[in-house]
Each structure stands twice: as structure tokens, then as C-alpha cells.
Write a protein that binds this DNA or RNA. Structure first.
Length: 484
RNA sequence: GCUCCCGUAGUGUAGUCCGGCCAAUCAUGAAGCCCUCUCGAGGCUUCGACUCGGGUUCAAAUCCCGACGGGAGCACCA
């Protein structure tokens, strides 16, 4: 017997079974209730990653079969978010375009004796199912059932008065698997795209199974909250003899300190609590973009996270690290002084400062300042207090000062003082740009920033000793969003 | 209540299928040090985990049983 060699440490995602190059078809299936948030990005990126690695086809399927939970803008926002994430969509499918397919499959099921139309009160039907017993309509003949189904389609039943049920196995030990609703009646809410053209809507389990088959899905990634749904849908595949795609269920993600719930956010936007879907306090893709996250960082995070069935807790620290690795290379450095207090430097008539735009890339040039008497700069209040206690401080790229009876005396520009335990702080010249940084909490940090070139707008820069920020506007007042 | 899934450091992850090379990988984090200049980057050091209990075996993170813990579903939502 041969033993398999121990495998090398895996890089990237694990192989999925039967991954055939060029033949893989996968899908991302969001409900168009709003733009994408952090939670969506995992499965979108994982699907995309597999599709890219195997020359597969990525289908974006809008699951808009519950008119109560549709935001019409989401039909545009979701593709925008996917594009920003770097997800390559090969085909877009909208479920509300496919009602005829669902109805057709429903009729076939009726003819096969695998479905019935139930007109019991909802509670009765549910209670019988709980006990593993059929409702009176379960065994109605094909003609009767078909007749009732056509009446449903014709609008003869009111909402909740009839449902189309797929038979599974009423004796199934798991109550969650027994007969499930395939189609229901919706009349009270018009469909944002289709108006009142349809009154019979498929349930997720019904439309998903049908679409997964007819769209030729080979591999499906879904949250493990769908574990039972996969079993229910298996009955449909079995009845029609369809080839079952390979399912991978991944664990639930909890995102600490994030506002994700689409309905909550939607409400908050209406009341003015949030400025919009891109309010930086939110966990939406557009908020992350606004804050200065690179899509590659989000991708690297999820690929590294893998696709196990274990529940995971999202780690901001980890994703910050991925993003930092990307933006640090290109982020120019600037001094931003929050809680500013003025400081006059005595004992010198003029000073010249030269600081590199990027410490690792001297070729990018320097920021230069000429300071003339009286020399007044601004520093962070807390830094000044600490410095005065210490009695001395190094002003980065400018010079050393000592404090004597409350005055800051210039002590030259020798870096050797660092050996003597001088702390380094940053500063800005007296006449520079007022600045505001918006934190992810919504809090504002006001102060001054050295004057920045217009090209920095839209880019991530580093405010030294503060953090990375994405610059929105450089003048007349600088505005930026804190990244991390 | 019924059914199903999952348990490796603070967090994520590799290893689990096919027991030994695992006194357990990598990343992140924290602490500290180095660096002529950041609370950044880089370099170095340290901290920290196989949920528990039995069993099988020369050998168990890995196989078996049980317990415990966590999660999901049992919708005319997705």
C-alpha cells in the first residue's frame, strides 16, 4: 500500500472537487435590498477567485422574488460594488425575468405528482407537517391540483389563501426538510420591475434550485445556514434527474463593531442618521472604499480566511494589516496636527525643513518649509505637554528644542540627541491648511495639515504618527477619512 | 422539543480524509530591542492553541465513543 506524501502547505483556496478548467460555472446571488456590505464580499470574492483560477463563468443572479425587500437602486449598486471589488461578472440574471420558467417547472411537478396546492390556513398546514402528517390537499389528484394552480396564476386566490407545495418526505426525521412551499401569492406589494404582472412568486428554495440547474452551475458556495435548504432543493434535483452541483457550505461570519443590516441602514438613511450608503460608520462596500480600503486587501483577507464550515469572527486588525501592506508603499507622508497648540521657537532667526514624501522612496522628492522669525509652529497639545515635562523634544525634520522657563529654545539639528532619549514629535508651520479627518466612528478630528498637492485627492496618504487616511479634498480646507 | 453542522493561541489559518517527519505552520495582535529621525515600513526576540473524558494503538490534533461548548434550520424571507 502506498501512502500519499504529506502535502505542501497550501496557498490560496483549497481545491474544490471536479474542478475542470474552463467548465466551472459559479454564481453570486444577492437579494437586491441594498448595496453590498462586508458580509457579501466573502462569497463574491471566493466565487470570483475560483472562477479566475479555473477559467470559470461567474453569474451574478439578482434574487428579487420578494417585492417587500427590494430597493430598486440595488440593481445598479450591486454591479457597481462588484466592479469595485474586482469581481469579473460574465453574466447577469434577474430572477423576476424568469417567472415563466418557474411556472413551467411547477406544472411539470404537478404532473409528476410531486407537488400540490394547499389552501389550508398556514398554521394548520405547519402543525400537520410538524407531526409528519399530510394536509387534505397532499393527495389530491393531478387534475384538481393543476386546476387550482392555474387559478392561483389567474389571481383567483387572495394572498395567503393558497400555496404551491413541493412534496419531499413527510416522515423525514428532520422537520426542516418536510414538504416545503415552492410558490406563494403576493398581491399587496407590486414588484419594482414587473409591477402587478405576476401574483404568484417563487420561494427562494424553488427558484434557486431551478436556476442553479438551468444556468448550469457546477459549484455552489453558500453559507451553512443553507444546509437544510440544500437538502430540500435536492428533492427537486432528484425528481427531474438533474445533475447536482457540488455544494460547499462555509461558516457564518460575525463582524464586530459593524453596522451591516441593510434594512437598518436603509431606515437610518431615511431619517438622516446616516449620510448615505457610503457613510463611513457603515460596513458597506462603498463605505470601505470611501475610507481608503483597497479591494485587493479585502480579497486577500477572504482568500486567507478560506472556506471552512467553522464560524468565524471577522478581524479588523487582520484586514487593516492587509490593507496597510498595500497602501503603505504608495502613501505619501504628511504632517497633520490635531488638537493644535501654537509653539514659538526662540534662539534662531530662520529654519529650513526638508522631509521625504515617502521614507522608502527618496526619488519621490521632499516637502520643504522655510520658517522665518518669529518662528511659530503648531503641535499636538498632548505632545507639547509630554515634551514640556521631559524638558526636551525633537521636532521631526526640523530641529531639537529644550524647554526653559516655558520657552522653547532651539538646540540645533543634530540627530545624535535621539540617543539621549529625545522623543520625536511632528508639527506644522504657522500658516498652513485647516483640516478635518472623519473617523470611522463619525467623530471629527480638527486641526492643521501641511499644504498638500491637488493630486492627493482621492488617494490614501499617511499622516505621520496618526494613521492612513483617504483624502477627499485638499483646499481650502483639507477633508479626509480615516482608514486605519 | 426535533434535525443537522462545527470545535487548533486574543483573532484568522495550516495540519485532520490516508495516525509517526506536529514538544503543532503562517499571518495578525501584544510586549521588547535594532534602525540618523513616524505610534509607518523593515530586521530581531518573546508571549500564546490541539474543548474535556474515556477507548484503540508501540504511537492520537489526526481513528472510535461519550460529554461539554458554539452555530444553523424546523417561514406563504433570502
Amino acid at each position: 500500500m502506498l501512502k500519499r506524501e504529506k502535502t505542501e502547505r497550501r496557498v490560496g483556496l483549497p481545491e474544490l472537487p471536479n474542478m475542470e478548467r474552463g467548465k466551472v460555472v459559479m454564481r453570486f446571488a444577492p437579494g437586491p435590498s441594498g448595496p453590498l456590505h462586508l458580509g457579501h464580499t466573502r462569497v463574491a470574492i471566493l466565487n470570483d477567485d475560483y472562477c479566475r483560477n479555473y477559467d470559470g463563468k461567474f453569474i451574478n443572479r439578482m434574487e428579487d422574488t420578494n417585492p417587500d425587500k427590494i430597493d430598486p437602486n440595488a440593481y445598479d449598486m450591486i454591479p457597481e460594488d462588484l466592479e469595485w471589488l474586482g469581481v469579473k461578472v460574465h453574466e447577469t440574471v434577474v430572477q423576476s425575468d424568469r417567472f415563466d420558467i418557474y411556472y413551467d417547472v411547477a406544472r411539470q411537478l404537478i404532473n409528476m405528482g410531486k407537488a400540490y396546492v394547499c389552501t389550508c390556513p398556514a398554521e394548520d398546514w405547519r402543525a400537520l407537517k410538524e407531526k409528519g402528517q399530510p394536509c387534505p390537499h397532499h393527495y389530491e389528484d393531478v387534475a384538481t391540483t393543476m386546476d387550482k394552480f392555474e387559478k392561483m396564476l389567474a389571481g383567483d386566490y387572495e394572498e395567503e389563501k393558497a400555496i404551491f407545495v413541493v412534496k419531499t418526505d413527510l416522515k423525514h426525521p428532520n422537520p426542516a426538510i418536510r414538504d416545503f412551499v415552492g410558490l406563494r401569492i403576493v398581491k399587496s406589494t407590486p414588484h419594482p420591475l414587473k409591477g402587478d404582472r405576476y401574483c404568484v412568486y417563487p420561494m427562494m428554495n424553488f427558484s434557486v434550485a431551478i436556476d442553479d440547474h438551468f444556468l448550469g452551475l457546477t459549484h455552489v458556495l453558500r453559507g451553512k445556514d443553507h444546509l437544510n435548504n440544500t437538502q430540500r432543493q435536492a428533492y427537486l434535483f432528484d425528481y427531474f434527474g438533474w445533475k447536482v452541483p457540488h455544494y460547499t457550505h462555509y461558516g457564518l461570519v460575525s463582524v464586530p463593531d459593524a453596522i451591516l443590516k441593510t434594512s437598518t441602514v436603509g431606515k437610518g438613511i431615511k431619517t438622516g442618521e446616516y449620510s448615505g450608503w457610503d457613510d463611513v460608520r457603515l460596513g458597506t462596500v462603498r463605505a470601505l472604499a470611501k475610507r481608503g480600503f483597497r479591494p485587493e486587501a479585502i480579497r486577500n483577507y477572504w482568500v486567507d480566511c478560506g472556506i471552512k464550515e467553522t464560524d468565524v469572527e471577522f478581524s479588523w486588525d487582520n484586514i487593516y494589516a492587509y490593507n496597510k501592506a498595500i497602501v503603505d508603499k504608495t502613501a505619501n507622508r504628511y504632517f497633520f496636527v490635531w488638537d493644535p497648540v501654537p509653539l514659538q521657537i526662540c534662539g534662531v532667526n530662520e529654519l529650513h525643513s526638508r522631509a521625504p514624501r515617502h521614507p522608502d522612496h527618496p526619488e519621490l522628492g521632499n516637502r520643504e518649509f522655510q520658517l522665518n522669525s518669529p518662528i511659530v509652529i503648531h503641535v499636538v497639545e498632548k505632545d507639547l505637554n509630554t515634551a514640556m515635562e521631559a524638558g526636551k523634544v525633537r521636532l521631526k525634520d526640523l530641529g531639537n528644542v529644550e524647554f526653559r522657563s516655558g520657552k522653547a529654545l532651539y538646540q540645533g539639528n543634530d540627530l545624535a540627541v535621539l540617543k539621549e532619549g529625545y522623543r520625536i514629535i511632528h508639527w506644522v508651520p504657522d500658516n498652513c491648511t485647516p483640516a478635518t479627518v472623519i473617523m470611522p466612528t463619525g467623530e471629527r478630528k480638527d486641526g492643521f495639515v501641511e499644504t498638500m498637492p491637488k493630486e492627493e485627492e482621492g488617494k490614501v496618504v499617511q499622516f505621520e504618527r496618526f494613521g492612513f487616511v483617504k483624502v477627499e479634498k485638499v483646499a481650502p480646507k483639507m477633508l479626509a477619512y480615516f482608514t486605519h
